[in-house]
Simulated assay, not measured.
Amino acid sequence: MTDPFWQTKSLAEMTRQEWESLCDGCAKCCLHKFIDDEDIDEGNDLQPTDFMADNEQMVYSNIVCHLLNDKTCQCTKYNQRTKLVPDCVQLTQENLDDVFFMPPSCTYRRLKEGKGLPSWHPLLHKGKKSAMHKAGMSVRGKVISDAEVDLDFFEDYIVRWPLNSVD
């Protein structure tokens, strides 16, 4: 029996199909994230950024993009998402090093860090997400749409459930 592609190939060597199949479908990347920084003021808060300083910390909320189906944990407009939501990032082999905000449980991040697939990953369960949902690793049942929230009160929505992998 041959080893699975994620054990024999680097992320850069994977085909587009292999790359896409690594996504566990947890939808944590769709969570609104904020950088906790005491130097932020009213003029620059809630602005997109492409870096994080050493003294800053990423804070995740349970607020998700309005395009997310929170039952299936899938984007309802996946192919158009970056046009409809300009801040939405399409994760690729080329930009993986620059995407610092992916949660620690993200399979792409785990593989990049040499940790391997988590035990609940759909690739280890015939493509099914049930083990992931059962392990509490998806956003299912834990989120609210950004269309239903006043973002001025984002601190009321800071995530209380784990972003780290359970294994």
Rank of each mutant, 00 (worst) to 15 (best):
C65P: 07
V139I: 11
S21W: 01
V59N: 04
N79D: 15
T2R: 14
R109Q: 12
M102N: 11
C29M: 09
R110A: 08
K71S: 09
E155W: 10
C29R: 03
D36S: 14
E38K: 14
L124R: 11
N79S: 15
W120N: 10
G127T: 03
D70L: 02
A53K: 14
V59I: 13
K142I: 04
V64F: 02
K71A: 09
Q74E: 15
K134H: 09
P103E: 09
M132H: 01
A27V: 00
S119C: 09
E56Y: 03
K28I: 09
M14G: 03
K83S: 11
D97S: 11
G141L: 01
Q47A: 12
E42R: 12
W120Y: 15
M14H: 03
S10W: 03
D97M: 06
T76E: 14
V64I: 13
K112C: 01
E56P: 00
P4S: 08
L46G: 08
E20T: 11
D167N: 15
E155V: 09
L11W: 06
Y78G: 02
I158C: 01
L91N: 01
T92P: 04
K33Q: 07
H121M: 01
G114P: 10
L96P: 04
T72G: 02
H66I: 08
T49D: 00
R140L: 08
N55C: 09
C29A: 06
N62F: 06
Q93R: 13
M132Y: 00
H32K: 13
R81N: 05
V149P: 04
D39K: 14
